[in-house]
C-alpha cells in the first residue's frame, strides 16, 4: 500500500517460491488445521489485523480481530477451539498471484484472497473478498509474518467470523 521507501520488485525465483509456500502453508493451517499451528507463522511481536477497506481507507484501525503478539494469537486459537459456541463450518481460502517487493522492513507481499464458508448442511457462501498486505521477514532461515493485514472489501459481512483469515 503506502510505499514509504523505495521498494524493489523481487525477481529471485527461489524467494518467490518460498513466500508462496509460506502463504499456502498459512491458509492450510486455517482451512485444514490444526489451528494450533496458525500462530507459528508469525514473529514473536507482530501485527495481525482484519480491517474493512471502509475503515482502512478512512484511516481507522479498528479491526474485527487485532493481535500484536504470538501470545494473543495462541489465545485466539485456544478460545476458538475450546471457549466459543458456533455452528460447525468449513473455511476455504483461495489466493491470487502475489506481488512481492523487498523493502527495508522485509519482503512486502500483496495478494487477493477470497474466502468461502460451507455450512453443516453443505451450503457454500462467499464469506469475503479481501487482500493480504503482509510484511515477511526471515528469522534463522525461516520466513515469518511480521505483519499480516487482511483488508476486506465485504464490509457487510454475511455471517460471523469464527476462524482467523
Amino acid at each position: 500500500m503506502d510505499q514509504t521507501e523505495a521498494a524493489q520488485p523481487v525477481t529471485d525465483e527461489s524467494i518467490l517460491r518460498r513466500i508462496e509456500r509460506l502463504q499456502l502453508d498459512y491458509i492450510s493451517s486455517i482451512d485444514d488445521g490444526p489451528l494450533d499451528n496458525w500462530p507459528q507463522f508469525f514473529t514473536e511481536k507482530c501485527l495481525y489485523t482484519v480491517v474493512s477497506r471502509d475503515n482502512h481507507s478512512r484511516g481507522m484501525e479498528l479491526g474485527v480481530m487485532r493481535f500484536e503478539s504470538v501470545g494473543m494469537l495462541i489465545d485466539r486459537a485456544t478460545a476458538t477451539q475450546h471457549a466459543a459456541v458456533f455452528a460447525p463450518r468449513i473455511i476455504r481460502h483461495v489466493l491470487g498471484p502475489m506481488i512481492v517487493d523487498e523493502t527495508g522492513e522485509g519482503y512486502r507481499s500483496r495478494c487477493n484472497v477470497v474466502i468461502y464458508q460451507t455450512s453443516p448442511d453443505g451450503d457454500t457462501m462467499l464469506l469475503m473478498a479481501a487482500q493480504y498486505n503482509d510484511i515477511i521477514v526471515e528469522l534463522d532461515g525461516v520466513l515469518k509474518f511480521k505483519e499480516k493485514r487482511v483488508v476486506y472489501d465485504t464490509h457487510r459481512i454475511p455471517d460471523s467470523i469464527v476462524y482467523p483469515l
Partner: peptide
Amino acid sequence: LRQANLMGSAGYVTLDDAEALEF
C-alpha cells in the same frame, strides 16, 4: 482497539451471541 476483540462479528463474546440467535 485491543478490547474490540471481544466485540463485533469475530468477537470473543458476541460471536457466541450471533450464533445462538441464529440457532
